[in-house]
Structures are given as structure tokens and as C-alpha cells.
């Protein structure tokens, strides 16, 4: 009996020690972005005329520099993007597992947000992907999943406008969301991502490490530090009615280590309750 009691006491101690997350200051993060009320980059008539009313789909490619089959998946993603020009956005997400351990400073593409998304979708093998964040699927299923949604009517007209101040490396960003149908959700969010395209660096391939591999669509974190986006309308009830219009404006600086010539803002609107993407949009900052 004594033995059992000792075992129980030890188990209790282990349980107690692992079940407390004692945090240290700072407890809150105030994002380095400046959010303003005035529209920084105006919407033009041309922007709205260019919108064809069809959905823009988000394909997130969960990938890694040490993942041997990932280049093949990236190729599928790029082809799908070409085939569905203007209606498919690709984001290469590098979470934080053994497959993403960088070869050098250039190839550290890991982000905290990407890792949180990865964990939410329970992804533990690479390549994997999500199409409009429905569920995690392997790359052979991407084409069918994309074709399944492409061509449907957009529930939201989402337009990203940017302006870039070269000397300050400052981006002014205006995101215009107009709801075209009533969305039944009490938590609709806008996620704003930084994406850097075409980075040359080592990548594991089927024939060994290719040091001149072109990494496409690399997710560099969210603009405002919010993993799951910002609530579009904090006063909304259980729906956002068709016709509602939101403008989100902010300013931020592009880190020196990123190539501003290949820098994009990817925006997408989600129903946070299901995490599913309703609509996506992107814009190059330059």
C-alpha cells in the first residue's frame, strides 16, 4: 500500500507541475502596426469593375525545407494557380517541426502563426494542405478540392489596396470588405498575412539537397500579429447582413530581411467558428 501511495503522490506532483502555465510579463502584445480609421489607399472604380463576382480560393501548402516530397506539391500548387489565374491564392506555410529546421538563416521560414494553424488542423505529415481551411488533405487531393469551389459566387467582395514608401519601407494598407450575401456567424474575422515569393535557398528533394531551389509563396506571419485574424464587427450579432461594408486600414514596416520587391499582402475572411475561409484576396506591395 505504501508503494501505491508513493506512486500516487508522485503522479499527483507530476500532474500539478505540468498543469500550470505560469506566465511572465508582458501579458499582452500590442501590435507594431498602426491601425487608423481613415482610408489610406483609396478604392477606385477600376477595382470594383475588375471584380467578377466569383470566389477567390485560398490554398495553404503546409511544407518544409527538409520535406522530400514538398517540391512536387509546390509544383501542383503553382500549376493550379496558373490554371485559375486570379481565383486561387497560394500560401506556403512552414510550421515548427523537424521538416522545417532551416539549413541556414535564409531558409528559416517558420512562424508561430503557421505552427498554430498546423496544430489546429492536426497536420503531422508533409506535404499537406487546406483548401479554404476545410480540412487538411494530401497534395493528390488538392486539384479536386480546388475545382470543387472554383467558379462559385463570392460571398464577400474583398479588395486589398497597398501603397509603399520606399525610404521608410512602410506599407499603407487598406482592405475593403463588402458582404454580398448574409453570413450566419457571430464571429467573422479578417486575417492579414505577409507573403514573400521566390526566395532562393536549400531544399530537400528526391535527388538530394538543391541549394538553388526557388521557395514560392512563403508565409512570413500575420501583419497584425493576430493568428486567427481580427473580428470584423465587434458589435455584430449572429449574422453579418448582405450589403455590410468594412474598411480596415493600417500601416507597418517591412522588415529589412524581407525582399520588398517580392512582398505580398494576402487577406482572407473566415468564419472563426468553423475556421473556414469565405473569400481571399492578395496584392503586391510594390
Amino acid at each position: 500500500m505504501k508503494k501505491i501511495s508513493v506512486i500516487l503522490a508522485s503522479l499527483a506532483l507530476v500532474f500539478a507541475m505540468t498543469s500550470c502555465d505560469k506566465l511572465k510579463e508582458p501579458y499582452k502584445i500590442e501590435p507594431p502596426v498602426i491601425v487608423v480609421d481613415t482610408n489610406l489607399v483609396q478604392l477606385t472604380a477600376e477595382d470594383t469593375l475588375n471584380f467578377d463576382g466569383k470566389i477567390v480560393v485560398l490554398l495553404e501548402d503546409y511544407t518544409g525545407v527538409r520535406c522530400v516530397n514538398c517540391p512536387e506539391a509546390a509544383e501542383i500548387a503553382s500549376q493550379l494557380q496558373e490554371q485559375n489565374e486570379g481565383h486561387l491564392i497560394v500560401l506556403g506555410v512552414h510550421p515548427n517541426t523537424a521538416y522545417q529546421i532551416p539549413y541556414n538563416d535564409v531558409t528559416d521560414f517558420r512562424t508561430e502563426e503557421g505552427n498554430d494553424w498546423n496544430n489546429y488542423f492536426n497536420i503531422d505529415s508533409y506535404p499537406s494542405g487546406t483548401v479554404n481551411r476545410k480540412e487538411a488533405i494530401g497534395n493528390p487531393e488538392w486539384t479536386a478540392a480546388v475545382n470543387n469551389v472554383i467558379g462559385s459566387d463570392a460571398p464577400v467582395r474583398l479588395i486589398v489596396k497597398t501603397a509603399y514608401n520606399e525610404s521608410e519601407r512602410e506599407v499603407s494598407l487598406s482592405v475593403y470588405s463588402k458582404f454580398l450575401t448574409t453570413v450566419e456567424s457571430d464571429d467573422v474575422r479578417l486575417t492579414l498575412c505577409m507573403m514573400e515569393d521566390s526566395i532562393v535557398g536549400p531544399q530537400q528533394t528526391t535527388t538530394g539537397v538543391n541549394t538553388n531551389y526557388m521557395h514560392r509563396h512563403v508565409f512570413r506571419g500575420t501583419v497584425d500579429g493576430l493568428t486567427w485574424g481580427r473580428v470584423l464587427d465587434i458589435n455584430s450579432g449572429s449574422t453579418i447582413e448582405s450589403g455590410r461594408y468594412f474598411a480596415t486600414n493600417m500601416k507597418f514596416n517591412v522588415d529589412e530581411k524581407y525582399n520588398a520587391d517580392q512582398f505580398y499582402i494576402v487577406a482572407f475572411i473566415t468564419d472563426h467558428n468553423t475556421r473556414q475561409v469565405l473569400m481571399a484576396a492578395e496584392a503586391k506591395i510594390k
Binding site: T18, D21, I29, V33, G225, R230
Partner: peptide, 28 residues
């Protein structure tokens, strides 16, 4: 006694401010 609760959310977002949340809160 020792009681712990686990909640999956790691952050609470209020406007532009993100509060970091403890996922495991223990009480003894």
C-alpha cells in the same frame, strides 16, 4: 487538492491588443 483547467485558446483578442492566455490554469 489540486485542480487544473485546460483551454485550447492561447490568446484573447480585443481590438488590436492580443492577450496571451495560459492554457493550463492550476489551483491548489
Amino acid at each position: 487538492s489540486f485542480v487544473s483547467k485546460y483551454e485550447s485558446e492561447k490568446e484573447h483578442v480585443d481590438g488590436d491588443i492580443k492577450y496571451i492566455l495560459p492554457q493550463n490554469v492550476g489551483a491548489y
